[in-house]
Simulated scan of single mutants.
Amino acid sequence: MTIGIRALNTSPVKSIKRNIGVTDIPVKFGGITFVPDNYVYVDADGMLLSKQKLL
């Protein structure tokens, strides 16, 4: 199957380092909130988030 792929921002621009930021805060990616001190387990079938260490 022939498909076309288009990338945005194909000319990378170096970021400006300001040495500021925030740590230990929840972040959200793809509709999932990742909370500090939680565990993330990933395999080929998917992803699992847990408040407890499972392994």
Rank of each mutant, 00 (worst) to 15 (best):
V35Q: 13
D24C: 08
D37I: 00
G30N: 14
L55F: 09
K17A: 02
T10N: 04
T10V: 12
T23V: 14
K14P: 01
K51E: 13
Y39G: 14
P26R: 03
Y39C: 07
T23M: 09
G30P: 05
V35D: 06
R6G: 06
Q52H: 08
I25G: 09
P26D: 10
A44R: 01
L48S: 09
G4W: 00
N19C: 09
P26K: 05
A7S: 09
D24N: 15
K28A: 14
I25W: 03
V35N: 12
G21V: 02
V35F: 10
Q52A: 13
I20Y: 00
N38R: 06
L48P: 00
Y41M: 05
R6H: 04
N38T: 15
K17L: 07
L49H: 03
G4K: 00
V35E: 14
T2L: 12
N9D: 15
M47K: 06
T23E: 03
G46D: 02
T2W: 09
K53V: 05
L54I: 11
G21F: 02
Q52N: 10
D37R: 13
V40F: 01
Q52Y: 11
V27F: 13
K17V: 04
D24Q: 12
A44E: 15
F34G: 10
K28C: 13
L49C: 12
M1N: 04
P12Y: 09
G46K: 01
L48I: 11
N19I: 04
A7M: 05
T23R: 10
Y39D: 12
N19Q: 11
G30T: 07
L8W: 01
G4H: 03
G30L: 12
L49Q: 12
L54A: 05
A44H: 02
V40M: 08
I20K: 00
F29N: 08
A44N: 08
D24H: 11
I25P: 06
V27N: 10
Y41V: 03
S11Y: 05
T2V: 07
T2C: 01
K53N: 11
P36K: 00
D24F: 05
I25Q: 15
L49S: 08
D45C: 05
V27T: 13
L54S: 01
Q52S: 14
P36M: 03
Y41A: 06
K17D: 11
L54W: 00
Y39F: 15
T33G: 07
L8C: 08
I25E: 15
R6D: 03
D24W: 03
K14H: 04
